[in-house]
Nucleic acid binder design. Structure first.
Lengths: 205, 205
DNA sequence: CCTACCGATCGGTAGG
DNA sequence: CCTACCGATCGGTAGG
């Protein structure tokens, strides 16, 4: 009862194109990746690359969805098993820094890259990025809220402020690493996130 | 003894092209601004736009130099008159947030935008951005060092870590503002920078 | 998923 | 600083 061979093959091609697009876009940006580049890189024709999606914009949206899926797997899912509140928040932070250190996307965080690229370009890609960004802020805020309710964070701490600061640190790590090539970027990010979460200096994330 | 009229006019044209390029690039990225777009926007011919620079890459480098000059004027020079150490660091932070809130570049911080765009694109533009980034980190680090020496920061604080965290916060403000349109972005950035500098909660930057 | 092709636009230049 | 033009590449499509 497996799908027809041609359908399975089409799905595999689609996935391969997306993986390549996500990788290239993390280095060059989503707009900077041309269909011709992509085709050349994969030894395919341009029609073969764009066909499964219909247009470059549709390909961009699919690449963004794929990248969000990878981010979710590498950061959220590694922490989702932990107790809600501070334990989970710490696990998210550790997974987030690790994701940046391991260069899960070779050109650095796909969402940071394309967020900067599209924040001034209205359209469906920007809308999707905004949605992803708001969703992730909401996840962080919710865990900070839980942590505060459980007295794992000070009673006067602001969950939205915690979410804002954690994202800021992650962006700082990405820049320090990808632009300046700073080998201490990850360590600096961990130290900064510990401070945001009010953890004592010696503590591990 | 003024320069020949044609030379002055040429300089004025050059400056006008750069201002337009910097503005467009803060929205669309440096690579995204085509010579044709720029010419159309200014009611000039493509030859007139690219002529003063010789090539698009030379124009990009000149635009980056112009943007660095504006950043320096809006952030560094507003604080340079203050006492070295914590007073100057606080003034830098306030000017930095203000610069982001006033949308000095209409698409957000030019250096954040192009830094993300070029961190994965080797070449002269990336090299220049790296230089600018390292220079600004050195400025922040030096002020933090002075502040520590004067006991305005804890003896065990790390000046490079302070510089890292301040840049992270500025990037966080830029994203919160330009992508999410968060009206509290500036306030959140000030609060975060106050924490980085160890200032009590009520204090102004 | 390929070949072959479309009109539009790219960066850049010759000549004035 | 303009017109007019260059070859190359862009996103996209027809037909198989």
């Amino acid at each position: 009862m497996s799908p027809r061979r041609s359908a399975a093959a089409a799905a595999a091609t689609r996935a391969a194109v997306l993986d390549e697009a996500v990788e290239l876009a993390s280095r060059e940006g989503l707009e900077g990746v041309s269909i011709g580049d992509l085709a050349a890189q994969m030894g395919m024709s341009k029609a073969g690359v764009v066909g499964p999606f219909g247009s470059k914009e549709a390909l961009q949206l699919a690449a963004l969805a794929r990248a969000s899926e990878i981010f979710r797997r590498e950061v959220w899912e590694r922490a989702a098993g932990r107790e809600p509140g501070l334990p989970r928040l710490r696990a998210i932070c550790e997974a987030w820094i690790s994701y940046l250190e391991r260069d899960v996307f070779p050109g650095g965080c796909f969402l940071t890259q394309t967020g900067a690229e599209f924040d001034g370009r209205p359209g469906p890609v920007r809308d999707a990025l905004l949605e992803t960004s708001k969703l992730w802020q909401a996840v962080l805020r919710r865990e900070a809220q839980t942590a505060r309710r459980r007295d794992e964070l000070p009673a006067d701490s602001d969950p939205a402020q915690v979410a804002f600061e954690l994202e800021a640190v992650a962006q700082g790590v990405n820049t320090a690493r990808q632009l300046r090539g700073d080998p201490r970027a990850g360590a600096r990010g961990r130290a900064a996130m510990r401070r945001v979460l009010g953890l004592p200096k010696g503590t591990r994330l």
